[in-house]
Design a protein around this nucleic acid. Structure first.
Length: 125
DNA sequence: CGCCTGACGAAAC
DNA sequence: GGTTTCGCCAGGC
């Protein structure tokens, strides 16, 4: 079920507008199905700013303090490499979480990355 | 207030 | 085909 018509931008009355690029990233990442992965660029592209893939990773930095936990471990770079593993509680956590979901990871690299790749711009949209 | 960095990506060399 | 540079945007110093 892909409710693309979801409230992509929820304005918080607290003045702090979460309509930022970050929140959109969080929203997409949270919708990544279990056992699937996506790339920063794919998320950025889904938002329309494919050129700002770096910002997606930057957004993940803030993902650590957001309420609904963001499955950042399901987001890897376009190589399928766990580039952000070092930013977790501990480097191995990312791989553990992925393997726990049935994703094979060898040497920080997602196996069959292309097969389990989940494109938000395609599946979600 | 300006320069550097950064969980990326694609083009250039 | 591997390495280097630029681009994007926001935040830290």
């Amino acid at each position: 079920m892909r409710k693309s018509s979801e409230n992509l931008r929820t304005v918080k009355p607290s003045g702090a507008r979460e309509t930022s690029f970050f929140e959109q990233v969080f929203d997409v990442v949270r919708q990544i199905p279990k056992g699937r992965v996506t790339s920063y660029g794919a998320v950025a592209a889904a938002l329309g700013t494919k050129m700002s893939a770096r910002m997606v990773g930057w957004a993940m930095n803030a993902a650590h303090h957001v309420k609904p936990r963001v499955p950042a471990h399901r987001v890897v770079n376009r190589n399928g490499l766990l580039s952000g593993k070092m930013h977790f509680e501990y480097p191995e956590q990312m791989q553990e979480l992925l393997e726990k979901e049935g994703i094979a990871v060898l040497e920080d690299q997602v196996q069959d990355f292309r097969k389990i790749f989940w494109d938000p711009a395609k599946e979600l949209f």
